[in-house]
């Protein structure tokens, strides 16, 4: 049940992930993160999740990349060369063990695309069969999002409101400087 398109897209995604780790130019890393989102949107379309795909393309590849570029323009776009080999080794060990445990966990899972998997036999048939009549629109994802799980979506907009208020408060606060005193620029004895 694995098509060649899955393999190609996944290999691209893995290559981009490794490239993001290795690149020290943050501008390139942010652009690759945008491509990563766009490729995963393609993969979502292949897996029949069209609503997730266009949200990912608009939000993940669009707004996120824009926000990151704005941050780069306010900070710096070059990463310091890594010196700490020990930390990298510890990270690699932790990641390998965690990954192996997660892969071991997937061995019990229903195979990809299996119609007998338990996930397809409780809520989903009810939504698929009844939502077009009950809600009156053909798109089942929209029916669930806006009606059956309406409170969930309402809570989601609250999260966005909270994040927006948080960002505004952060930028409204007066500047705090914790740099070393000898590095501080004092007006008057400036560039001369």
């Amino acid at each position: 049940m694995i098509d060649i398109i899955h393999v190609i897209l996944f290999v691209f995604l893995a290559a981009i992930g490794v490239a993001i780790i290795r690149l020290r130019d943050l501008f390139a890393a942010v652009m690759l993160a945008g491509i990563f989102s766009l490729l995963s949107a393609t993969l979502f379309t292949v897996m029949d999740a069209v609503d997730v795909a266009f949200t990912e393309a608009a939000v993940g590849a669009g707004i996120s990349t824009l926000l990151m570029l704005a941050t780069l323009s306010l900070t710096s776009s070059e990463e310091k060369p890594a010196v700490n080999r020990r930390q990298a080794m510890i990270g690699l060990v932790v990641v390998t063990i965690t990954g192996a445990a997660l892969i071991y966990g997937t061995l019990d899972m229903p195979r990809y695309g299996d119609p007998d998997a338990p996930i397809h036999h409780h809520m989903a048939p009810r939504f698929i069969e009844d939502s077009p009549e009950e809600i009156g629109i053909p798109n089942e994802v929209t029916s669930i999002l806006a009606s059956y799980r309406g409170y969930d979506t309402w809570g989601e907009t609250t999260v966005i409101l909270a994040a927006a208020i948080g960002v505004m408060l952060l930028f409204a606060a007066p500047p705090v400087s914790r740099r070393r005193e000898d590095e501080l620029f004092t007006p008057g004895e400036g560039t001369g």
Binding site: M1, M47, D48, A49, V50, Y112, G113, D114, P115, I119, H120, I128, S131, P132, P138, N139, E140, V141
Partner: peptide, 11 residues
């Protein structure tokens, strides 16, 4: 969520 031979959930 993928079902073999299925299509996008639009009635």
């Amino acid at each position: 969520g993928k079902v073999r031979g299925g299509t996008a959930p639009i009635a």
